Simulated assay, not measured.
Amino acid sequence: MTNFVQILTMFSKTCEYAIRATIYIASESFAGKRCGIRDIARKIESPEPFTAKILQRLVRVDIIKSIKGNGGGFEIDKVQLKHIKLEQLVKAIDGNDLFDRCSLGLHDCSDKQPCPFHHKYKPLRENLKKTLKETSLLDLISEFNTGDTFLKL
Rank of each mutant, 00 (worst) to 15 (best):
T131R: 07
H107W: 10
I54S: 05
F117S: 10
F144P: 03
N70A: 14
V59D: 04
S27F: 04
K133P: 00
A18R: 08
Q80L: 14
P116Q: 07
I84L: 05
S66K: 15
Q88T: 04
V61L: 01
I76T: 10
I25F: 05
V5H: 10
L106C: 14
D108F: 13
A31K: 15
E87L: 15
T14P: 03
T14Q: 14
F4A: 11
E126R: 09
I25D: 04
F150W: 12
A26L: 06
H118M: 08
V5G: 00
S66V: 02
Y17R: 11
E126N: 11
L124I: 12
L137T: 01
A18L: 05
R57I: 02
I93C: 04
Q80T: 08
C115R: 09
H107T: 14
K152C: 08
R60D: 14
F99C: 02
P47M: 01
S27N: 13
L151G: 02
V5C: 02
I67R: 04
P123R: 09
S103L: 12
S66R: 15
P123W: 08
Q113L: 15
A31M: 14
G95K: 10
F11T: 00
E134A: 13
F74R: 03
I44V: 05
T131E: 07
I84F: 03
L153T: 13
S136A: 01
L8Q: 09
D100C: 10
P116Y: 04
C109K: 11
F30R: 14
K91L: 12
E45M: 09
L138V: 01
N96Y: 14
A92P: 03
Q6I: 11
L8D: 00
R20I: 00
P114F: 08
G32K: 02
L124V: 11
I141A: 03
I23M: 09
E45I: 06
N96P: 00
G69L: 07
K152F: 08
I25S: 02
I67T: 12
K13H: 10
Q80Y: 11
E16C: 11
N127W: 05
L8E: 09
F30H: 14
P114R: 06
I37D: 01
S46L: 10
K82Y: 03
L89H: 03
V61I: 05
K82Q: 12
M1Y: 06
L58G: 03
C15E: 03
N145H: 09
K112Y: 13
F117P: 00
A21K: 06
